[in-house]
């Protein structure tokens, strides 16, 4: 049965949910959900730390949240990342229809959007560090900001590397029961990153801007 897993799946064939057709796939699926549960606690801890350290008493040098953040750039970043989540939904939709080509296309778009997001984030950090005296070591607020947003950025980078690896590795052999779960959980990961960003946008940027 195991080598059957490498057989190429074509549109119109069954199964409809190739990611859950094997026990390995089911395990991956469930295990990854559990992993995201742990990741939630990880980010919750970082959010908690940030909320404890974003007040004026922690902002001993450099500008505070209200002065620092510009909502325009962050809004664009948010739109881009949300869109990439949507495009990854399309990719998985095509995976369920066993249409490998379209899945790759939509994953490609997702990656492109993700890269744009990451580029903008690097630009944002660059501006803060170079022109705003807001660095990781300047004060506790700086440390908390870069830890939270940087952790998210690191997740985006890892997600991109992961999706690209999957796309390149399987470009020749197409979709099969062995790699379908891998694509599926990579997309789950991507959605998770997206959800975390929504919270970052709200808690860090919106509340930072309005709260100040």
């Amino acid at each position: 049965m195991s080598s059957d897993q490498l057989q190429r799946l074509k549109p119109g064939q069954s199964p409809h949910e190739p990611e859950k057709a094997t026990l390995e796939g089911k395990n991956k699926f469930l295990g990854f959900w559990f992993f995201l549960g742990g990741e939630t606690v990880l980010f919750a801890s970082l959010f908690g730390t940030y909320l404890a350290l974003n007040g004026p008493e922690s902002n001993t040098s450099g500008p505070g949240p209200a002065e620092l953040f510009g909502l325009e750039l962050v809004f664009i970043m948010t739109v881009i990342l949300l869109t990439s989540s949507l495009t990854s939904v399309y990719a998985i939709y095509h995976m369920k229809n066993l249409d490998f080509g379209k899945m790759q296309l939509w994953l490609g778009i997702t990656v492109a959007l993700g890269l744009t997001f990451l580029g903008l984030e690097i630009y944002e950090f660059y501006e803060y560090v170079m022109h705003e005296d807001h660095t990781f070591t300047s004060d506790a607020f700086g440390s908390a900001f870069y830890a939270l947003v940087g952790f998210h950025g690191g997740h985006v980078l890892f997600g991109l590397l992961w999706i690209v690896t999957l796309m390149v590795r399987n470009s020749k052999r197409g979709l099969n029961l062995y790699n379908a779960p891998k694509f599926y959980i990579a997309s789950l990961y991507w959605h998770f990153i997206d959800v975390v960003w929504v919270f970052i946008f709200t808690v860090v940027y919106l509340m930072g801007k309005l709260g100040g």
Binding site: A52, L53, A140, A147
Partner: peptide, 11 residues
């Protein structure tokens, strides 16, 4: 970083 350093605003 300064997460736990009260001198730098940490807690």
């Amino acid at each position: 970083a300064n997460f736990f350093d009260p001198q730098m605003g940490g807690n």
